[in-house]
């Protein structure tokens, strides 16, 4: 059982405060959704937790199983078990998905340990079967010329292979049509387990119809202003973000 604790976190971009005191705990096996309008700091939260160099954490802490990740480089955080599914994944021309994942898994092995290639491909193909991804996919360069749906499936495949303790999913539904959304959601659902905690960031309730969260948090101006179960998402959908603004945000 693992635990990701975000404690009174404050994040700035340059001089501008974006996240202003956010506290949240996610445990293994739980799926949390953070909802909120654009510009409220949801993506900033995800990137700051992952260690993006453009985001400065001005106060607060992020603990993974009780240990602060803040002194760690992004790659150390990743190897410790934090995975960020990007809203806009980078293209890496010439680097195939298979080679990229292989390098990422090799990076998790100890000094002098060599990846077993046969075992690796076996596992890769079984994950691809699970996620219903065509095997030809692995020879394509990472995200290079991918459609929106392909990029998101590529993120889910990486998540499946790297088996993180916690996945931060940043607007995984953005840019997807309804079919692509269903495929991606099926993939995430297939990966749900007692060993994985998920923090889903989304603007719309739509995604939550496919990936049903255990907890829903409403974010506004850099803070969580209301938490509840999945019914909160429906209530939010019905009442709109004006409801949050008028009733939930302290004047």
């Amino acid at each position: 059982m693992s635990q990701l604790e975000i404690k009174d976190l404050h994040v700035s971009i340059g001089e501008k405060p974006i996240v202003k005191g956010l506290t949240l705990t996610v445990r293994s096996g739980e799926v949390h959704a953070i909802m909120g309008p654009n510009g409220t700091g949801k993506s900033t939260l995800a990137k700051a937790v992952a260690g993006h160099p453009s985001y400065t954490i001005t106060s607060g802490d992020v603990l993974l199983d009780g240990k602060s990740v803040l002194p760690m480089q992004p790659d150390e955080r990743a190897r410790a078990g934090l995975f960020l599914a990007f809203q806009y994944p980078s293209e890496i021309p010439g680097v195939s998905i298979a080679n990229f994942l292989r390098a990422a898994i090799q990076a998790r092995l100890g000094e002098g340990e060599e990846l077993d290639a046969t075992g690796y491909y076996k596992r890769l193909y079984s994950k691809m079967d699970l996620l219903q991804i065509d095997r030809k996919f692995t020879s394509r360069a990472i995200n290079d010329g991918f459609s929106g749906g392909e990029k998101k499936r590529c993120e889910i495949l990486q998540m499946a292979m790297l088996e993180p303790k916690f996945a931060l999913m940043d607007e995984t539904d953005s840019g997807l049509d309804i079919d692509a959304l269903r495929i991606v959601a099926d993939g995430v659902n297939a990966l749900r387990s007692t060993n994985l905690g998920v923090l889903m960031i989304t603007h719309y309730q739509r995604l939550l119809g496919y990936i049903v969260p255990d907890h829903v948090h409403v974010m506004w101006d850099g803070r969580i202003v209301k938490s509840g179960d999945k019914s909160l998402a429906l209530e939010l959908e019905a009442k709109g973000y004006d409801w949050v603004k008028n009733e939930l945000v302290p004047a």
Partner: peptide, 22 residues
């Protein structure tokens, strides 16, 4: 690009060499 690759667990040097090899 470097951040993306580091987020998958590659060190900065590994990320750079992967990008160059690509």
């Amino acid at each position: 690009q470097i951040f993306y690759m580091m987020q998958r667990g590659l060190s900065e040097g590994e990320a750079m060499s992967l990008a160059v090899n690509g």
